[in-house]
Write a protein that binds this DNA or RNA. Structure first.
Length: 711
DNA sequence: CTAGGGTTAG
């Protein structure tokens, strides 16, 4: 039937539907055939309102009486619009059901998602009980529902039934089987069926490719693609989409570029928004942010996913400033942020401790009536905690209607890194009382909380009870926490014995934890034993070397310090430059060590000079031991005053009013002298200073620190 | 009026 004829019929039917209700029902009733034809096109177009009106016409004109034909069309129409209650009502009223009707209902339920999918399986069973035989149309719907609900056993049974009926050789049924096993994560089975398929189309190949990508075998996906090309199959947009996600997973830039080029050459479909977004994601994951950004900027009609991919690309690459800027641009341009956007941007706030920015996002959510669900709530509480506002973090936590394991863990971690071990343990026990089963992650959080607070007995108890109580086996990460806990508290031998008793080879992290404890406890004997381990280790950074050097420096063993330094030089390792962030008037400022690029540089260094004099008068003596370079004492002292956290503090002191809390984050562990200086500044200037270093928070107030010098 | 309906990706 051609479109204009349908349109005329449609207009006629709507005219009749509206006039009949006001005048008389016997004027112009449409025939069954007419209604059926119109319903068919409305079903295809999923235009609910018009179909609903036509239904009213059919009812009032009496056409529906004892009419299986129209009833079936109506039920199919409602089902295709996802209006299952109405469809079910019609369905129930039809005495002589046919297979098409059953299929339409099963499809409606299967495509509706959620528990509705389960209804489709129930209906399928009901259909069989009434003596019907499933046909090649039935299976794809039922299999889809099984895949969606991950009903493995039922899915296998339906598969068996399809085999018995011989319909598994139908290509649609076959493809649906592949899709179902792919969702079950059973690529072995999917592959076996695929290999045995009598014929395969692009969908079969595409399903295999995306199946391997989804099940974390991107390499296999590429192998299948190779075979697909050799088999002469048509490569379409879906194929390219699967390949691009494979490249994203493998961080395979060259290959990704190849797919990009192939797409440009072989189909104009690269303008498809899904492909564009996949390209942006691929370039981001391959660390080609600039390239991704160029693609992104070229796109005129950006959807939320495009914004999210790009914002997340900046966040992942560590450019939190650009991440926040792009979010502002998104809002200004009228795009609609969703949950993913919010979580990503809050992650950006974490990185640079942008508390005011994060707080404004919280207000934005409230103002826009954005429901704060578990995921958004958790990232909000995490943001507050990482930005140094534990009280706000707890408020969000308490107001969350639903908490999951991640929410509880985030709260435990929050208390832990702020040095409030007792509260961390309390939250942990509240979680257990709430019947949430702990995992490795939350146990790591609670153990490290014990460690930061020196709660040795509590931590030891949790560690030794975790296998029997919570069925969590000790992992290297957990061992590393306990070694840290025992070592810091002075139980170095117990920690060392624990490492030796482990059934697995200790990881670098575990040795690093023990070494760090040696520094704190000034245990030279063990440190000397560990030195060899440090050399054997393959650390990404220079942390352990710096630690070792600090240990020797504290004992004034300069020869050993020089030996370590030489080793670092030989290995070509570099300490990343210190970098601190501080937020003033909703703007985050970044300071590198010795930074002179800031507009207020003159004032900052003058302020530091002034502070140095005042501190010296108050009895401060610089501790140059932690300076890693071989220079004389005066130069070392000067270098200390270049440390980025001091620049940030001085800047904040100049630009904020009395009593304002100063919040700072630094990319490395803060040095002993900065720790002393910050304590003194907090007293001298009557300022609370909250500093997050790579390990934990330090709350400086009235000349002392919340870590009790134990970090 | 006796056909009509299905699979992958986002």
């Amino acid at each position: 039937m051609n479109g204009s004829f349908t349109h005329k019929l449609l207009k006629h039917s709507l005219y009749t539907a509206t006039t009949t209700t006001t005048t008389t029902t016997t004027h112009f009733p449409l025939t069954s055939l007419q209604c059926g034809t119109i319903l068919q096109s409305l079903t295809n177009a999923k235009s609910f309102t018009k179909g609903h009106q036509l239904h009213a016409h059919i009812t009032t004109s009496g056409t529906l009486q004892n009419n299986t034909y129209l009833g079936t069309k109506l039920a199919a129409f409602y089902a295709s619009c996802g209006r299952m209650p109405q469809a079910q009502f019609i369905f129930d009223g039809i005495d002589f059901k046919n297979l098409f009707l059953w299929n339409a209902m099963i499809r409606g339920y299967a495509c509706n998602g959620g528990s509705s999918s389960f209804k489709s399986i129930v209906l399928y069973r009901e259909m069989l009980a009434f003596g019907w035989k499933a046909d090649k149309f039935t299976y794809p719907f039922v299999l889809k529902a099984c895949g969606y609900l991950l009903l493995v056993e039922i899915g296998r049974r339906v598969h068996g039934e399809a085999v018995v009926s011989g319909l598994d050789s139908d290509i649609y049924v076959g493809n649906s089987l592949l899709a179902m096993y792919m969702k079950f994560g059973d690529m072995g089975m999917a592959r076996m069926l695929f290999d045995r398929m009598p014929e395969r189309d692009s969908t079969s190949w595409n399903t295999m490719i995306s199946g391997y990508v989804k099940n974390e075998s991107p390499k296999e996906a590429l192998v299948v693609f190779d075979m697909m090309e050799k088999a002469g199959m048509t490569v379409d947009g879906t194929t390219l989409l699967g390949l691009l996600s494979a490249c994203t997973g493998l961080m395979a830039l060259e290959l990704g570029k190849g797919v990009h080029g192939y797409g440009v050459r072989h189909n104009a479909e690269m303008s498809n928004k899904f492909l564009r977004n996949a390209l942006i994601e691929m370039y981001c994951s391959c660390n080609s942010i600039a390239y991704a950004r160029r693609l992104f900027d070229e796109v005129k009609l950006k959807d939320t996913v495009s914004w999210n991919s790009m914002i997340s690309g900046h966040e992942q690459s560590g450019d939190a400033f650009e991440c926040l800027r792009l979010f502002c641009k998104m809002v200004t341009e009228g795009a609609l942020p969703d949950e993913v956007t919010i979580v990503t941007v809050l992650g950006g706030c974490d990185q640079i401790m942008a508390l005011q920015f994060g707080t404004s996002i919280h207000s934005y959510l409230v103002k826009k009536g954005f429901g704060v669900n578990t995921i958004v709530g958790t990232s909000l509480l995490d943001m507050y905690s990482k930005c140094g506002s534990l009280a706000s973090s707890r408020c969000v936590f308490d107001e969350m209607p639903e908490k999951n394991l991640v929410s509880w863990s985030a709260m435990v971690t929050g208390y832990g890194v702020h040095g409030r071990g007792r509260e961390a343990i309390t939250i942990f026990h509240a979680m257990i009382a709430d019947n949430v089963c702990p995992d490795e992650g939350v146990l790591t959080s609670v153990l490290s909380a014990c460690s930061h607070a020196g709660l040795v007995n509590e931590g030891r108890q949790i560690f030794h009870g975790m296998t029997t109580k919570y069925n969590v086996k000790p992992t290297p990460a957990l061992y590393s926490c306990v070694v840290d806990l025992l070592g810091r508290a002075g139980h170095l031998n117990e920690a060392y014995e624990l490492i030796k008793s482990m059934e697995v080879v200790p990881t670098d992290d575990i040795w690093a934890a023990l070494l760090s404890a040696c520094r704190l406890q000034r245990n030279m004997n063990l440190a000397e034993i560990l030195e060899q381990k440090v050399f054997e280790m393959n650390p990404k950074g220079v942390g352990s070397y710096v630690c070792l050097s600090n240990i020797y420096a504290a004992e004034k063993r300069w020869g050993d310090v020089e030996r370590i330094r030489a080793m670092v030089r030989k290995k070509g390792l570099k300490k990343p430059p210190g970098c601190s962030f501080v937020e003033v008037d909703k703007k985050v400022h970044r300071f590198l060590v010795g930074d002179r690029s800031h507009q207020q540089t003159e004032y900052i260094y003058a302020k530091l000079e002034d502070l140095k004099q005042q501190l010296k008068e108050a009895g401060y003596k610089p501790d140059t031991n932690s300076v890693f370079y071989d220079v004389d004492k005066e130069v070392k002292e000067k270098m200390l005053w270049d440390h980025s956290e001091r620049l940030a503090i001085a800047f904040a002191l100049i630009n904020t009013g009395p009593g304002t809390i100063i919040r700072i984050t630094k990319n490395l562990r803060t040095c002993g002298d900065c720790h002393t200086v910050t304590k003194l500044i907090s007293k001298l200037m009557c300022r609370e200073i909250i500093m997050r270093d790579i390990r934990r928070f330090h709350h400086f107030k009235d000349g002392s620190c919340s870590c009790s010098d134990y970090w």
